[in-house]
C-alpha cells in the first residue's frame, strides 16, 4: 500500500509500506494491507512505518489527520 506523509511545508515521506502505526486520538492503531476506509484525527506522537523492503522509519508529529482509502494512505501532519 502507498503512503504519503505531508506537512504544510514539506513532504516527509512517500512510498510503499507494509505497516503504519499512528497515534490516533482514540488510541494508537496500525494500518495493514486492505484496511477499511478510515478518517481519523491524530494526536501528538510518533508515526511508525515499515517499508516493503523491511526498513523501519519513525516521524514525530504534533497532530494531524489520517485518511486510508483503497490502500492509499495520506497523513496530514503538523511537525513540531
Amino acid at each position: 500500500m502507498y503512503l504519503e506523509i505531508i506537512t504544510p511545508e514539506e513532504t516527509l515521506f512517500t512510498g510503499d509500506v507494509k505497516l503504519v502505526q499512528v497515534p490516533g486520538t482514540k488510541g494508537s492503531f496500525e494500518i495493514l494491507h486492505n484496511h477499511a476506509p478510515i478518517i481519523s484525527s491524530l494526536q501528538e506522537g510518533a508515526v511508525r512505518l515499515i517499508t516493503t523492503e523491511g526498513s523501519e522509519k519513525t516521524f514525530a508529529i504534533k497532530g494531524g489527520i489520517i485518511e486510508a482509502h483503497d490502500n492509499h494512505i495520506t497523513i496530514l501532519g503538523e511537525t513540531a
Binding site: T25, I38, I39, S40, S41, I65, H69
Partner: peptide, 20 residues
C-alpha cells in the same frame, strides 16, 4: 462518497479540522 469509518465522530473531527 466512500463509506469511511470516522474516528472520533464526524462533529469532533470537523471541530478539529476547521481551525486547522
Amino acid at each position: 462518497a466512500t463509506d469511511y469509518i470516522f474516528e472520533p465522530d464526524k462533529d469532533t473531527l470537523l471541530e478539529d479540522l476547521v481551525p486547522k
